[in-house]
């Protein structure tokens, strides 16, 4: 069911079934939460992904073989579904912030209001955080909103920009270059150094549409 593989001299990887799915995600989440609360000596870092968990360890305290055995013998309660938090994230879809929303609406032949509706309707699952600090890999985008990345990436996208790329939607946690189709922006700081993270792997998020005035009000109170 799981496979524990060596990953360099001081890490290992727990590999789950090779698909992106809610059941696999739930299993990864159960292992992750269990490992977080277990007190296995020598674990320095636990990093869950779609269908794997990377463990970094201190080779002065433990070894690959010792840790592999402990991980394989963990008793995971597979029925745990508790602590599913839903985080509401306000997003302003005004075209002054959603730089590509008009273009997306045109190329999809869907009215802007309908784009907003399609984007705000689902509860998105936070499969993992990765790539850069605070970046969420979200599942649950309506296929009607699947759209390729921009041919030429923008040199600067503001922090909080909400975008679409292929089958994904996401939020840029900090200002970076990027090729996503930008349809809105959240006034919330998604990643703040030394603050408790806004969302964690396994949470759900829901986008709530706000107007430009509310955006500026919220932005200024943060």
């Amino acid at each position: 069911m799981i496979e524990v593989k060596r990953f360099g001299e001081k890490s290992l990887i727990i590999q789950f079934e090779n698909i992106i799915s809610i059941p696999v995600h739930q299993q990864v989440k159960n292992y992750y939460k269990h490992l977080l609360h277990s007190s296995i000596d020598g674990i320095k870092s636990i990093s869950p992904a779609y269908n794997s968990i990377t463990l970094m360890f201190d080779p002065l305290v433990t070894s690959f073989d010792a840790l592999k055995e402990k991980v394989e013998n963990l008793e995971i309660d597979s029925n745990t579904t508790a602590d599913q938090k839903v985080v509401e994230i306000p997003v302003c879809y005004d075209s002054s912030l959603g730089l590509d929303i008009e273009e997306v609406a045109q190329s999809k032949n869907i009215a802007i209001d309908e784009i907003i509706h399609l984007h705000t309707a689902p509860h998105y699952t936070v499969y993992m955080l990765g790539f850069s600090p605070g970046f969420m890999y979200l599942g649950g985008l309506n296929p009607q909103l699947f759209i390729p990345r921009k041919k030429t990436p923008r040199l600067q996208i503001p922090a909080g920009a909400v975008g679409l790329a292929d089958q994904q939607t996401g939020i840029y946690p900090s200002a970076t270059p990027g090729g996503w189709q930008i349809i809105g922006q959240t006034p919330l700081p998604i990643f703040q150094v030394n603050e408790k993270p806004l969302v964690q792997m396994g949470d759900q998020i829901k986008f709530k549409p706000i107007d430009l005035d509310t955006f500026h009000q919220l932005k200024n109170t943060k």
């Binding site: 990953f7 360099g8 001299e9 890490s11 990887i13 992904a49 794997s52 990377t54 970094m56 990765g130």
Partner: peptide
């Protein structure tokens, strides 16, 4: 692959 962990030296 399905996005997964990386460490120094990968």
């Amino acid at each position: 692959i399905i996005s997964s962990g990386m460490v120094k030296g990968t």
